[in-house]
Design a protein around this nucleic acid. Structure first.
Length: 600
RNA sequence: GGAGCCGUAGUUCAGCUCGGCCCAGAACGCCUGCCUGUCACGCAGGAGGUCGCGGGUUCGAAUCCCGUCGGCUCCGCCA
């Protein structure tokens, strides 16, 4: 039988007790962390949210009943203890514990609940599969490191609110049951009971609502909000995730960026005490792709891409030559110190490159004053000289090259660069390299759908100079591919942690963009009619941004995956091992919704 | 849709290459006893396993083959 709590109240959290409490009688509540039974004196570590303190049951000083009761204690029993805070006897202090100089001599014990034997121990640095951790998430979350992550998350919410409210932002909730939109990610659908055959969609983001709030005249909106995308999962992608969403009226790109970086600076200072320097570096999309092969470069290390297409067009090596002359791109990376790689390691790099679409990878090893390579025989002495100069090659380096269509060369080298940095341990984990990537293309060509699609989203404003060319582009879609948008991404250590844009705020430009995207007038009206209509009633110029809160937290806490900063995440198959969701529902429920399950 | 790694006591793993000495072993946890200052307490003893699941090969399968399920990482996908 367990005891009732009745009027037993806690005086302190375990971790808050200090030497200043010595002599005080205190009541504590918490979980039995560990038990050390010496046959005589019995020690337990009592744990609550704020920490751990040692509690002593000394049979020579307490009643037989109390001692016998204490003997029953096991890990994770929930107890209340009354006792006196004492200084520990000289020589028995534990410098590893925050409360290691004191202990509580118990004279009263409540056993409020017992615990089954645990599937894993409640401590950090345990090796347990994530599956088990997620199934018993309530135990996993008792571990100090997980408690820290979730509490840090809470502190970030507060810091965000503090900063944004202080800057005139108004927090508004937007609907979770909303309308499916054709562009973008796959929607999660919710069947409507009252409107048979119709479906709500869970929002991929509050994009349209926040724009409408600008039309409604709120000027500055924010929300910490769940978003839903029914796409495949990754370490940094969950089907439901949290955005810090904001939108402002009468602003330029620069206004949104400077406010956003100030927000990040505030959060880092407030939560981690870290000074982040602003303004962040700005880099155009074009520069990012050319130098790093990606639109979210990790600037914590070098390994930049070097263009040797000109030289490649002259050499006899057919692979280089053909690519260079047919409008492709030949680029290389100088892997400093890479000459120590074995032939096997270089072959592995080639295999890695092939995974991302490369047909092969050329390489030159510079070791002991000699150059080893399968391709150098195609180079004249003078060409070699120029190549080494361009690559800034020295003894001990490994030069790797990819020759392919522009997109593939960049893509492959972008992945290779990251892979090499990890392999060579070039990444300083303590560094924070923020940057803004700006001047994104407005549109890109979708091979599958055979039409132009928005790179960001279809409400993103083109640059002013391109707005003037919209009519021309409707005649000649090729021209549209050169358009730049007023979009910007915040990148931290090679991860996109936020992105946004200045939006289109007039109905006629929005309609032209839909036309460019080959969205018919009927479809545009059906899907986005309310937006176009809203824009026609005095919509102010506006723009905003959304941060991926989970990703920011993963970086702040040094977590490998965003699952470690989400209280109840899902597995890669979108399953919640704790609750067993998703699951079948009753025939009755389906019938009410007029839904029939088709057997495979 | 595709690729890779993994799946063996409650947990983390070893055993698998080359089938039999394995009706499977270690550590931690658990149980019992002893132990009056420990804090990774100690000491002695003990319990605990559908080797993910199904099928096949074989005299014999944790081990080889096929299929399947699950977890993780990645590609595609994710405005």
């Amino acid at each position: 039988m367990t005891d009732q709590l009745r009027d037993f109240k806690r005086d302190y959290y375990c971790g808050d007790l200090t030497e200043n409490n010595i002599g005080e009688e205190v009541r504590l509540l918490g979980w039995v962390d560990t038990v050390r039974d010496h046959g005589g004196v019995l020690f337990i570590n009592l744990r609550d949210r704020e920490g751990i303190v040692q509690v002593v049951f000394d049979p020579s000083k307490i009643s037989q009943d109390l001692y016998n009761k204490a003997k029953k204690l096991k890990p994770e029993y929930v107890i209340g203890v009354k006792g006196t805070v004492n200084r520990r006897p000289v020589g028995t202090e534990n410098p590893k514990m925050k409360t290691g100089n004191i202990e509580v001599a118990a004279d009263y014990l409540l056993i409020l609940n017992t615990s089954e034997v645990l599937p894993f121990q409640i401590e950090d640095n345990i090796k347990v599969s994530e599956e088990i951790r997620l199934k018993y998430r309530y135990l996993d979350l008792r571990r100090p490191s997980m408690q820290r992550n979730i509490i840090l998350r809470h502190e970030v919410y507060q810091a965000v609110r503090e900063f944004l409210v202080g800057n005139g932002f108004i927090e508004v909730e937007t609907p979770m049951l909303t309308k499916s939109t054709p562009e973008g990610a796959r929607d999660f659908l919710v069947p409507s009971r009252l409107e048979k055959g119709k479906f709500y969609a869970l929002p991929q983001s509050p994009q349209l609502f926040k724009q409408i709030l600008m039309v409604a005249g709120f000027e500055r909106y924010f929300q910490i909000v769940k978003c839903f995308r029914d796409e495949d999962l990754r370490a940094d992608r969950q089907p439901e995730f949290t955005q810090i969403d904001l939108e402002m009226s009468f602003v330029t790109e620069e206004d949104v960026m400077s406010l956003s970086e100030a927000l990040i600076q505030h959060v880092y200072k407030k939560v981690l005490g870290i000074d982040v320097k602003i303004p962040f570096r700005r880099m155009t999309y074009e520069e990012a792709i050319n130098r790093y092969g990606t639109d979210k470069p990790d600037l914590r290390y070098g390994l930049e891409l070097i263009d040797i297409t000109d030289l490649a067009s002259e050499v006899e090596f057919k692979v280089f030559n053909d690519v260079a002359k047919s409008g492709g791109l030949v680029k290389g990376i100088n892997v400093k110190g890479g000459a120590k790689f074995s032939r096997k390691e270089i072959d592995d790099l080639t295999e890695y490159a092939k995974k991302f679409g490369a047909k092969g990878m050329a390489w030159i090893k510079l070791e002991n004053g000699e150059a080893t390579s399968p391709i150098l025989k195609f180079f004249t002495q003078e060409q070699k000289q120029r190549l080494f100069e361009k690559m800034q090659a020295e003894d001990g380096d490994l030069l790797v090259f990819i020759a392919d269509k522009k997109e593939i060369t960049h893509r492959v080298l972008g992945f290779l660069r990251k892979h090499l940095a990890e392999k060579l341990n070039l990444i300083d984990k303590n560094k924070l390299e923020f940057l803004w990537v700006v001047d994104f293309p407005l549109l890109e060509w979708d091979e599958e759908e055979n039409r132009l699609v928005a790179l960001h989203h279809p409400f993103t404003s083109p640059k002013d100079e391109d707005i003037e060319k919209l009519d021309e582009a409707l005649e000649n879609p090729q021209l549209a591919l050169s358009f730049k948008s007023k979009a910007y991404d915040m990148v931290l250590n090679g991860e996109e942690i936020g992105g946004g844009s200045i939006r289109i705020h007039t109905p006629y430009i929005q309609q032209k963009i839909f036309k460019l995207l080959n969205i018919s007038e009927e479809e545009a009206k059906e899907k986005f009619g309310f937006l176009i209509e809203a824009l026609s009633y005095g919509a102010p110029p506006h723009g905003g941004l959304a941060f991926g809160l989970d990703r920011i937290l993963a970086i702040m806490t040094g977590s490998e995956s965003i699952r470690d900063v989400i209280a109840f995440p899902k597995t890669q198959k979108g399953i919640c091992p704790l609750t067993g969701a998703p699951d079948y529902v009753s025939e009755k429920q389906l019938k009410e919704l007029s839904i029939k399950i088709e057997e495979e």
